Computed example of a mutant assay.
Amino acid sequence: MNTDIENLKLKYDKPFDGNHSVLQPKVNEIAFEDIISEMLERQKRANNIMISNLDEANSNTKDDLTSVKLILKDLNVDVDNIKMNRIRKPNQQRPRLVKVILKNPEDAITVLKSRRNVKMPSIKNFQDQTKKQIQYYKDIKNELQHLIDNGDHTKTIRYINNKPTIVTRMNQKNY
């Protein structure tokens, strides 16, 4: 009986075709590879921030770099060795996003923490996120919207340990 149980475990751990040859890696191995890939991608993006609404009408890369340095200098970030580029195709309706690559993750965190101190109100900056992070946020946002549509207006999204989470809204009093 123990032998039969062990054979069944082996059978379901490895997918087989009719000839008992392995077709593909185990599901756990695929999930593990996805997790490792996601971690590496997030680590690559740790130094990056994205800036939106930076005007690009009649601008070139040099003008963009000057504007980005001006924004970052107000936030007390070292701007000597930054790199930047516009992403996506040009669009007449709105300016493209600007991807800024900073020297280290600490500078990126400093910019993100002090984003409210940007002197140009239309300029927004945010973290460079992977597709899975963006999809996760969309899913959380849809779940929150579903709760609101069902009459629960006590919930909101807060970042807990850098992860968007639905939490109960705190009543804020203006003192």
Results as ranks from 00 to 15, higher is better:
Asn104Tyr: 06
Lys62His: 04
Leu40Trp: 11
Arg94Phe: 09
Val27Ile: 15
Pro105Phe: 03
Gln93Lys: 11
Tyr136Met: 08
Pro90Ile: 11
Lys73Glu: 15
Ser21Trp: 06
Thr110Val: 13
Ala31Trp: 07
Tyr175Ala: 12
Asp80Trp: 00
Met1Cys: 12
Gln133Arg: 04
Lys11Cys: 11
Leu8Pro: 00
Lys113Arg: 14
Ile5Tyr: 09
Tyr137Trp: 12
Ile148Asp: 03
Lys9Met: 11
Ile101Tyr: 09
Ile5Pro: 00
Ile134Arg: 06
Arg158His: 15
Asn76Gly: 11
Asp63Val: 04
Val118Glu: 02
Ile134Phe: 04
Asn150Trp: 05
Lys124Trp: 11
Val79Ser: 00
Ile82His: 00
Ile49His: 00
Asn142Pro: 01
Asn162Phe: 08
Lys141Trp: 05
Ser52Glu: 14
Asp128Gln: 05
Met39Leu: 13
Asn91Trp: 07
Ser67Thr: 13
Asp78Thr: 01
Lys11Val: 11
Leu75Pro: 00
Asn2Val: 14
Asn81Phe: 04
Lys155Gly: 05
Ile109Tyr: 07
Asn53Trp: 13
Val111Cys: 07
Asn19Lys: 15
Asn7Arg: 09
Ile140Ser: 08
Lys119Ser: 15
His146Gly: 06
Asn171Ala: 06
Asp152Met: 06
Lys119Glu: 12
Met84Lys: 04
Val100Met: 00
Leu97Thr: 06
Ser37Cys: 12
Lys62Arg: 08
Ile134Cys: 02
Tyr137Thr: 04
Asn58Lys: 07
Gln135Glu: 15
Thr61Lys: 08
Asp149Tyr: 02
Ser122Val: 14
Asp17Val: 04
Asn19Val: 12
Asn48Leu: 01
Asp17Trp: 03
Asn125Asp: 11
Asn174Met: 05
Arg169Ser: 05
Lys9Trp: 08
Lys62Val: 14
Asp17Gln: 04
Lys62Asn: 07
Asp34Ile: 11
Asn150Phe: 09
Ile87Tyr: 10
Lys11Gly: 04
Val111Pro: 00
Asn2Tyr: 15
Lys113Met: 13
Ser122Asp: 10
Gln135Leu: 15
Leu40Gln: 10
Asn161Pro: 02
Ile30His: 07
Asn162His: 07
